[in-house]
Design a protein around this nucleic acid. Structure first.
Length: 519
RNA sequence: CGGGGUGUAGCGUAGCCCGGUUAUCGCGCCACGUUUGGGACGUGGAGGCCGCAGGUUCGAAUCCUGCCACCCCGACCA
């Protein structure tokens, strides 16, 4: 059908997960085969049409548009609350890291060396050979280059050195909301942009076990946030050595599964041992008066989470937002034939809005006269607003409202006097329903395999996570990656000890790990 | 950074191979009118340094060179 489909109605289609996606309503008539199966094209189109973000003129960077940023702000607020409840404080550190500082932790510097933006000059001047143009002033070369932070460990640890003297100064629990720059070879909107927004936590502790507990605690917080707010089920685990953060001794992570069967690392929390303390000479006197290096952690989540949100819940009509993160949870659309009706409906709508607001529900009343109701319906579906209320003359007469759910696309007529409680209940159901749906999808896409043939077959046809035995060696991991492009996403924290044979090498294994193709 | 592709109005595109009237079509936008319970219709209108910079030519969206950006596949990565 797709080879010859000609779109006659108001649609432009892309194919996603085997179904037809309708991200906007431009009249087109063309053969679709060239674009079918192009998930990320769909994704970019949808994201842009839903007014979340667009590519900027700067290589690999994105402009986050107001509606998209409102979602990020919601996420920020909830995460920040959780950080503070666990005793963390926010601070801010410089964007620029002197190269010498950056070099201090060798592994970390090596890990990021290939993707750094570097400031070498501090002044422009008029170009004498090209009037009206500017050029870099060759006389304004910096003595030491500045690295635009790809992460802030170096600058933060060099600062921490001055903050820690005694065990009484510990633990030091700092978080920073910031932008970082990684000059990635290949970028992808939300998932891997050259500049991105994130939070990075950096903590110092007196003991190893306390630092490990911190790293685990923060990974738990990420998991909780993903599941309770974003309605995205995640698997907690630790990374293998080759997937580990450069400079870390252990990397904890949360892994999510997208609708196209690819895995996405949604957040990481690192136990850094004493590596950074040693590199930046951060010592403290313990309660016995002896000098020791502090134990460190770092942890972060980024605007990539927005990509996860989009790719986990969206459907053919656009975004589907969980109520807890929607910029507004309810939109009221009036349906009217004349000014008199609009006036009456507006009064009703304002009453409903006030009533919902008093219950802590965020509401938008769209009384624009420039767009017709059908247009508004489609727009809010594209934006993923969880609940839509429509009020027309018939409702006014009957004392009712039409309530439509974004996730199930179902509609019901609700009496005015029970509306607020109904909306509250439905919002909860949507939040829970989205999680359940995503969980069911994921459960159906974790496959236990016993042989490499099976491994390859599942990866090709079914996709998703593969639970398999692994001999624990990097060589095996690398070879599997080379052959199948699948990587070990994590060694799940809750996986049971189980004797078996490595799917690739046949060597003994005592635990299953999760493989998948990843973003 | 290597391989492939693309760049024409806010968006999606035709034209390019084989240079030649005023650059095609749709959506969107603006005005007026009729409409308004699922992306309205009619009539009229505006909007383009054809990615940027050079070159070839009487003449370049079209040919050549360089650069830039984006997309896909690798390598890298949250």
């Amino acid at each position: 059908m797709l080879d010859t489909i000609k779109i006659l109605s108001f649609v432009k289609t892309f194919v996603y997960s085997g179904s037809i996606v309708v991200p906007n309503y431009e009249i087109m008539s063309k053969n679709l085969t060239s674009r079918s199966e192009d998930y990320s094209k769909w994704y970019n189109e949808l994201v842009v049409k839903a007014d979340l973000a667009e590519n900027s003129a700067v290589r690999g960077c994105m402009v986050i548009k107001p509606y998209g940023y409102a979602i990020w702000e919601k996420m920020q607020a909830e995460l920040d609350k959780m950080f503070k409840e666990t005793g963390h404080q926010n601070a801010y550190f410089p964007l620029f890291v002197p190269k010498s500082l950056f070099e201090a932790e060798e592994k970390n510097a090596e890990g990021f060396a290939k993707e750094c933006a570097i400031v070498t000059h501090y002044r422009l001047e008029n170009d004498p050979e090209n009037s009206g143009k500017l050029r870099v002033d060759p006389n304004a070369k910096l003595e030491e280059e500045l690295v635009v932070r790809p992460t802030s460990e170096a600058i933060i640890w060099s600062t921490f050195k001055g903050w820690v003297q005694s065990y009484r100064d510990l633990p030091l629990l700092i978080n920073q909301w910031a932008n970082v720059v990684r000059w990635e070879m290949r970028t992808r909107l939300f998932l891997r942009t050259a500049e991105f927004l994130w939070q990075e936590g950096h903590t110092a502790h007196a003991t190893k076990s306390e630092a490990i507990d911190e790293a685990i605690q923060m990974n738990n917080i990420y998991a909780k946030f993903a599941e309770e707010f974003m309605a995205i089920p995640v698997i907690q685990g630790v990374k293998t050595e080759s997937e580990r953060f450069a400079g870390a001794e252990e990397t904890y992570c949360i892994e999510a599964l997208m609708q196209d069967g690819k895995a996405l690392q949604a957040g990481t929390s690192h136990f850094l041992g004493q590596n950074f303390a040693k590199a930046f000479d951060v010592k403290f006197a313990n309660n016995e008066g002896k000098q020791d290096y502090v134990w460190a952690t770092s942890w972060g989540v980024s605007t990539r989470l927005m990509g996860a949100l989009i790719m986990t819940h969206s459907d053919d009509k656009g975004l589907v937002l969980p109520p807890k993160l929607a910029p507004f949870q309810v939109v009221i659309v009036p349906i009217y034939k004349n000014d008199d009706q609009l006036c009456k409906i507006s009064k009703q709508a304002e009453l409903i809005k006030a009533s919902l607001k008093s219950e802590g529900i965020s509401v938008k009343f769209d009384d624009r006269t420039t767009q017709r109701p059908g247009h508004k319906f489609a727009q809010y579906e594209l934006q993923g607003v969880p609940i839509r209320l429509a009020i027309g003359p018939n409702d006014l007469k009957a004392g009712t409202v039409e309530l439509a759910r974004r996730d199930t696309l179902t509609k019901e007529v609700v009496d005015l006097d029970s509306l607020t409680s109904r909306v509250e209940a439905q919002l909860q159901e949507i939040q829970a329903g989205l999680f359940k749906k995503a969980l069911n999808f994921r459960s159906a896409h974790i496959t236990r395999v016993e042989s490499f043939e099976e491994f390859k077959a599942v990866l090709k046809q079914k996709t998703g996570f593969i639970s398999a035995h692994w001999d624990g060696s990097s060589e095996t991991e690398d070879k599997i990656k080379e052959i199948t492009k699948a990587t070990i996403r994590c060694i799940p924290l809750d996986s049971k000890k189980e004797l078996g044979e490595c799917v690739f090498s046949g060597k003994p294994s005592n635990q299953r790990v999760l493989f998948a193709k990843a973003y």
